[in-house]
Amino acid sequence: MTETAVLSTYELPKNDRPTPTLKRRVQPRRRLRQNIKHVMLLLGALLMLYPILWLLKSSITPESEILTSFSLIPTGFTLDNYTNGWQSGVGNGVPSYIVNSFIVAIGCIIGNLMSCSIAAYAFARLEFRGKNVMFAFMLAGIMLPYHVIAVPQYVEFASVGLVDTYWPLILPKLLATDSFFVFLMVQFLRGVPRELDEAASIDGAGTFRTFFLVILPLMRPALVTTTIFTFIWNWNDFFSPLIYLNNPSLYTLPLGLNALVSTESGAGLGPMLAMSVVSLVPIALFFFLAQRFIVGGIATTGFK
């Protein structure tokens, strides 16, 4: 995955240079340049968003007209694609895929928030034997391609009868194996003054109380980032569910969507596009609500 990105995130110094502000009165030539720039950027943005806009438009277009038009202006309006799509799918159908996807995503979020924060606290603040070796191991874990361990992991989960459950998807998060987030939180904690926990310890708080009462509340920004990206990545995840979930009634949305193409019960092009839109809505919502966290601020590092 691309999460390595963040290495420097929390360390980014503040801008040395203020964002150039536009002078109120610009000379005509400059204004012309600005306008040309805007036209180019707008065209570029349109090109970038075109596939998404076309998807949206096609999802409300009568099925027979979808493929005949590349324009973004709807030629008709129908919600049939949505109502048909909603009732399509193998197993218990699309609504169940959505519920399942939420179960998995929320399980992963809870797992990452709990396990990564305590591990990060130990790495950032506590002293113990073997710390350097363990920390190096954790860092290496960020780079490890999942495909290398996929087979034995499957064998492991199969041997304890956990295939066709959500445990293979959620348990690794409860065990802090998303090293990336551990590292993110360690980096964040390095920016939190030690005086705070020292004060707590002088007041007689042990490590547990210090963590829960002092450190955890301060970690909020890192926890928010973790929540957002855990959600987006696991909502989109296809490889692990593909391996572990064979029973269609357990399908997450990506699996269910993929199956819409191949099954006879699949509802055709329009419903498929409509349900694709449905699957992207939570990501888009997260994106617009949390843009500040994703694009600006810390996540300025652009992991996908």
Binding site: M48, L49, P51, I52, W54, L55, I232, N236, F238, L253, P254, L255, L257, N258, V261, M272, L273, S276, V277, S279, L280, I283, A284, F287, I294, G302, K304
Partner: peptide, 14 residues
């Protein structure tokens, strides 16, 4: 935005 969506099944289908 596209880089958040690009790896999804939905965009693959598109």
């Amino acid at each position: 935005l596209p880089s958040l969506l690009g790896g999804s099944v939905a965009i693959g289908l598109l």
